[in-house]
Design a protein around this nucleic acid. Structure first.
Length: 285
DNA sequence: TACCTGTTTCCTGTTT
DNA sequence: AAAACAGGAAACAGGT
């Protein structure tokens, strides 16, 4: 028996998404995108598309795209080294990329160079503006635009990410290549797992403006501050506008059995990374 | 094509 | 009373 059809089709309108947003969302520091980045809406396919003209935010979007595309463990990239705009990014040398991203550096360097000249990458068109220009009504923004925050929100001293030595990668390219000394990830059919998505938000303070919070950094205990907002972000990543915290939390509960998460007694919206969750510990920097 | 994994969706009941 | 939690059941989708 078919219990339900594709839920997206049953969503009445984008207004329902807004109504799902928590009231706290309105206080979320994410102003209208056209206000923050007016050029985005007026010149989507202009020169802004070129990496040389990207904002810091687009640089981060590109990095995120690279992480997804190549199945790179985001914890392996020192994102603080990419707190640059497109002009600065394009001025980085091969050595700079290697320093900033270790063994992933050459991949990023090559991808960027292809974008510089063609606007395409490995046959997959990269448009960092997709997340911004698409469906502005059903999601206020994806990750916050870094430039709209005080500089001190992004702590460049934060070394919350794992060293390149812990890199895991499983792109088809690297699977076939014996020249790259990457570890291969196990079966991961749909890109980033939910728990990795959660972990990466926690590890990247610039993305994590009040969405999630460490309760006990050492023990891996964290709390959802804006549960519905995180669910919306997750849904955005999965192209599922009907994602809710209720559904996200069901997926989280499956992690208990896998020991990716451990039970935390009696504390609402609080979870704890388990022994099979990797890349969140400070000692894994 | 069957099977597997990792969700996603829906649900009922319980706890806070 | 509402929100969150717990977990069963089935569907779904991408990868092998």
């Amino acid at each position: 028996m078919v219990r339900h059809t594709t839920c997206i089709m049953s969503i009445p309108s984008t207004a329902s998404i807004e109504s799902q947003l928590p009231t706290t969302w309105s206080s979320y520091p994410c102003p209208d995108i056209s206000t923050v980045m007016p050029s985005y809406t007026s010149s989507l396919w202009s020169q802004d598309y070129k990496p040389q003209y990207w904002s810091k935010y687009l640089v981060w979007q590109w990095l995120q795209q690279m992480v997804d595309m190549h199945q790179i463990d985001a914890a392996s990239i020192h994102f603080q080294n990419f707190d640059v705009d497109g002009r600065q990014l394009c001025s980085m040398t091969y050595q700079d990329f290697t320093r900033a991203a270790g063994t992933v550096g050459p991949i990023l360097y090559q991808s960027l160079n292809e974008l510089k000249w063609s606007g395409q990458h490995l046959g997959v068109e990269f448009n960092p503006l997709d997340m911004i220009k698409s469906e502005p009504d059903d999601f206020p923004c994806s990750f916050p635009e870094p430039s709209i925050y005080p500089a001190d929100i992004f702590d460049p001293s934060c070394q919350c990410l794992a060293p390149v030595a812990s890199l895991t990668i499983s792109s088809p390219d690297t699977k076939r290549s014996h020249s790259r000394p990457h570890q291969i990830k196990k079966h991961n059919p749909r890109g980033t797992h939910l728990w990795e998505f959660i972990r990466d938000i926690l590890l990247n303070p610039e993305w994590n403006s009040g969405l999630l919070k460490w309760e006990d950094r050492t023990d891996g205990v964290f709390r959802f501050l804006k549960s519905e907002a995180v669910a919306q972000l997750w849904g955005k990543k999965k192209n599922n506008s009907s994602m809710t915290y209720e559904k996200l939390s069901r997926a989280m509960r499956y992690y208990y059995k896998q020991e990716i998460l451990e039970h935390v007694d009696g504390r609402r919206l609080v979870y704890k990374f388990g022994k099979n969750a990797q890349g969140w510990r400070e000692s894994e920097k």
